[in-house]
Simulated assay, not measured.
Amino acid sequence: MSDTTELTRLFAQLRAASPAGYSVGLHIRFASPLVAEATYDPKWLEHYTANAYALRDPMIAWGLSCEGQTRWSEIELPDPFNLWRQAAEFGLNYGIAVSCGPVQSRTIIGCARADREFTDQEITKIATIARTLHEISEPQTDLTQAQIQALRCIAGGDRHAAAAAKLGISESALKARLVSARERLMARTTSEAIQKAKEIKLL
Rank of each mutant, 00 (worst) to 15 (best):
E67G: 09
Y53E: 10
V98C: 08
I109A: 04
A87R: 09
A52G: 06
H160R: 15
C66L: 12
R131T: 13
E76V: 01
I123T: 11
L143R: 02
H47F: 11
A38S: 14
R116N: 13
L151Q: 06
E89F: 02
R106Q: 10
T49W: 11
N51E: 08
P42Y: 04
V103K: 14
L133Y: 02
R29C: 14
F90G: 01
G110P: 04
V35I: 09
A97F: 00
L92K: 04
A161G: 13
D57F: 00
T144K: 10
S65I: 01
Y94P: 01
S73E: 13
A36S: 09
Q86S: 12
T39I: 05
S99F: 01
A150Y: 12
W84R: 10
C100A: 14
Q86D: 07
T132S: 12
S137I: 04
A127K: 08
Y40R: 14
R159G: 13
I96K: 00
N93E: 11
L167H: 09
R152S: 09
A146M: 09
I123H: 06
R85D: 13
N93P: 12
E74V: 04
R113E: 07
F90R: 01
R152Y: 15
Q149Y: 14
T124D: 15
W62C: 08
L55F: 03
A97I: 00
A87T: 01
K125W: 14
S105D: 08
A112Q: 11
H47L: 09
L151H: 11
L55W: 00
V98M: 05
R56V: 07
E122G: 01
R159T: 15
D41G: 03
D57M: 02
H134Q: 09
P80S: 02
Y53P: 05
A165M: 12
G157N: 11
I136Y: 05
Q145L: 13
D142V: 08
L45R: 12
E138K: 06
E135P: 10
D142A: 07
E122A: 08
V103N: 07
G101E: 14
C66A: 14
W62T: 06
E117K: 03
F30E: 15
Y48M: 08
E37T: 12
Y53M: 08
A87C: 06
V35D: 05
A61S: 09
A87V: 04
Q140L: 09
T49P: 04
S73Y: 06
N93M: 10
